[in-house]
Design a protein around this nucleic acid. Structure first.
Lengths: 252, 252
DNA sequence: CGGCGGGTTGAGTCGCATCAACATGCGTGG
DNA sequence: CCACGCATGTTGATGCGACTCAACCCGCCG
């Protein structure tokens, strides 16, 4: 099975076999973390990017009044920081949600790799762009969607993101290991209200969530209810993959 | 008076006089727009980036149920899109808030300029990074701050962003041309509630807003009330400016 | 003068938060 | 092997923050 990073990139970028080999070599798993463990601590400067290879993680902030907001959810194949620059310090922290294995990509190697191959650079930019688009849509949810719409929207989004990396079974069912408390922190809701809104969602019979398993029974219905429009994910419908022969302009 | 784009960059990047000249040449104003006019329309593909030279603009989305969410506020010197890639299509629209003049930067020139000068590339990345950080903090506001906190936080942020480009008078007072209706769409609130929360804020005497003029009477107090921590803006306290002599590594 | 964009105010309602129990399953240590 | 603690999920009661609907005000401009 292909590396989730590559699987994802194939939905928006055009990589040759060579390109993929280069990326794979950079993205070797190097560390494992237990659930709830912090990947990096606020304020700590580092020389590498974090790539999720397996498991789920999140980017969160804790305000001074103790409230917590999860800003972003990271799935296998997701880069946790932009590739182009290292901030002088982190302003918030990344934590594992499930047990996680990560790869740490040296920042300077990333940059020189991108400079050497326009295709790889293009792919990294596409990835960055969709990450931002996801956060933007998250912002829109918090601003203008109701609790059930937020939940539904999240589940629709996860459905596509997980499908990209081959983690959806029968096109409708996937593992959803996020607790209700974390869903609250992600969606700007209280734990109690998440619970009740989930029940409301289940009652629509559009989807169900038992144990850690989420199943969508009526995708179109769920999307309508959630005001979900997939275009922000900038996804190419069929995974694209170029021939392995010479790239025009490569290394130019 | 220096170009707002340069003034802003000086708070996070290290540019030589040469670098600045190059950027200035790219960022010539090319178009004027009336208030409320759309800069670019959803779905329309383009070959250039938009830079605000004068006036305020915003990036917004309208959901299918008619609700509107402003995702981002753009001040003079702000780039409205990431410089590295052109999305195949825009998923949302940019509109002028006040009368606006913009520069349109050709995307390919941007990229080759960045490639030719590491310092310029660094500066553009820093700019991009802070834009994201601002949107992220916006997301946190929508998720976890109350109405008055959101307003206060916004005013604190604008205070710094405007100070960066020299649009704050006496370190405490600036023009704030956003209507209450737009504040609602920006902060995920109803117009009516914005009005009442503003009154509440005025009642604290930490700040006042009369006409289009916002004045901060107690900056520290306002920041505490708003849970505002400026570090996300990645701002260097004193504007940095390198000597105009040779750059080591330039064009390497 | 009338219309319109912007701001303000009041009344009523509802979504969501908070506080507080209680249920369940699991892992651990006695 | 059971007792206990802990994480997770569920439910009820109550209150507040924010929304909606509906006026009304002012200043500006055609």
């Amino acid at each position: 099975m292909a590396h989730p990073f590559l699987r994802k990139l194939r939905h928006g970028a055009h990589l040759t076999q060579d390109n993929e080999n280069v990326l794979i070599a950079l993205a070797r798993p190097v560390r494992s973390l237990a659930a709830r463990e912090d990947v990096s601590i606020e304020g700590e400067p580092r020389g590498h990017l974090t790539l999720i290879v397996e498991g789920w993680a999140c980017h969160y902030t804790t305000l001074e009044n103790g409230k917590r907001q999860i800003v972003s959810l990271y799935l296998p194949g997701d880069l946790c920081e932009p590739f182009g620059i290292l901030p002088r310090f982190m302003t918030n922290a990344i934590a594992a949600i499930t047990p996680v294995t990560i790869a740490q990509l040296r920042h300077d190697t990333m940059r020189s790799t991108a400079q050497a191959s326009p295709r790889i650079e293009e792919a990294l930019w596409w990835d960055l762009l969709t990450s931002f688009a996801i956060e933007r849509e998250h912002l829109i949810s918090l601003g203008r969607r109701t609790a059930t719409e937020r939940l539904g929207h999240l589940f629709c989004e996860l459905h596509l993101r997980l499908e990209n990396i081959g983690l959806v079974d029968d096109e409708l069912s996937y593992d959803m290991p996020v607790t209700q408390a974390d869903l609250g922190d992600l969606l700007g809701l209280s734990l109690v209200h998440v619970n009740r809104s989930l029940q409301e969602l289940r009652a629509t019979r559009l989807m169900s969530l038992r144990g850690r398993r989420l199943t969508i029974h009526n995708l179109r219905g769920l999307r309508e209810l959630s005001l979900f429009d997939e275009s922000y994910l900038h996804r190419v419908t069929s995974p694209s993959r170029h021939q392995p022969h010479a790239e025009i302009g490569e290394l130019a």
